[in-house]
Amino acid sequence: MGWFKKHSYPPFWNEYLSSFDNHSHQDLHDFRFVVFDTETTGLNPKSDRILSIGTVAIMNENIIVSDQLEVYLKQDTFNADTVKIHGLLKTGKLEKVSEETAIMEFLKHIKNAVLVAHHAAFDIAMVNACLKRLGLPNLKNKVVDTGFLYRNTLNSSNPNLHFSLDDLSKQFNIPQHDRHTASGDAYITAILFLKLIALLKQKKVKLKLDDLILPKKRIGLL
């Protein structure tokens, strides 16, 4: 990325980029993870829109409840079919912000954290589509997919194995509060992430970040 181009971006993006300036850790404890989930109008990153983003951070393998974000977006696109899943109406009582404000808040919150999501590729693609509409490049963060992590615990490399958050929260005994709200799902994913890390540690004592990261080529694939 050229010096000239960098300056054509808004300040919040540059600030976001600068948070990546120095990172050379590999020890899991040194990283800030931000577990997140989006509720959307549908499953197509191009035509569908984000209705809400929920996040919660993990440091040192503790879920930091105070380090979180919960935003609801004003969107013109609306899909009555998905309302029954997430319960978000076009004009609900919740305080809503513009897509740009939401993305600004999101970037300010995540900084250089490692992003964690269940079936992360979709959520990342949704965020990247927002960024594109704002004339910005894709997210720079490293990404961990809890679905992929679970496949790793099974020692399976079959990419067609697919596990929903519902399946896994049942299997891992995670109470499903606020399922299908962005924050609720982010929290469930966070617990799932901690449980998966514990499982993976049993297999490999010195677990490194690279062991968790979703291979680059899979990001963006659905």
Binding site: V65, Q68, E70, L94, E95, H177, D178, G184, Y187
Partner: peptide
């Protein structure tokens, strides 16, 4: 808003 905190409470 912090739904997670609400659930904890």
């Amino acid at each position: 808003m912090n739904t997670i905190a609400l659930r904890i409470s």
